[in-house]
Design a protein around this nucleic acid. Sequence first.
DNA 1: ACAAGGATTCACT
DNA 2: GTGAATCCTTGTA
Length: 198
Amino acid sequence: MVMDLSGPVVEVAPTLLGATLRHGGVAVRITEVEAYDGPNDPASHAYRGPTARNATMFGPPGHLYLYFTYGMHWAANVVCGPDGHASGALLRAGEVIEGIELARSRRGRSPDRDLARGPGRLCQALHLTGAMRGAYLFGAGEVSLDPAPDPAPSISIGPRVGVSAAADRPWRFWITGDRYVSDYRRSPRAAVSSAPRR
DNA sequence: ACAAGGATTCACT
DNA sequence: GTGAATCCTTGTA
């Protein structure tokens, strides 16, 4: 089944919650995402126009935008919005629901709860790297995305994590009360007295 | 050509 | 809670 991801990213991103992403023998149920809205979003990698790295985001929705950061971590986005509008949803956390032994072996010594809780961890558990850049999620390729089962999960909304620009925008979405949601500190520049918890 | 910083994670105190 | 690891991408000269 093909998900329609061509709408505005802030509307489409939450619909990814509860969906299942498969790659490399592991399946993850997505529990947390963040929206990045290209030209309208100073925190987006696509804010300043197309480059070699972000080219995938300028294409049609339903593809994977992968980037390498901090010299050691991959992070995965699902490209959203109409073709040409460079927006995407960062997959921030999930629960491993298939291939958990494989995920454990990739993640080293790590509690099961943390196998895919965090953008870098999620990619490591699924073995997503630059080799999968631009992969289409709804075809017959190695990576696939299945929509969330009915009924849709209850969703919570809050500010994004780790961004140094536009940190106040409530563009982070997670499944209310879910145990498999990241709990990282916010950007120090974005300190707010009442940081939402899960 | 060069310098700065990053949509993070982990070990250690 | 703090800091290191580590290299790619980007802006500026």
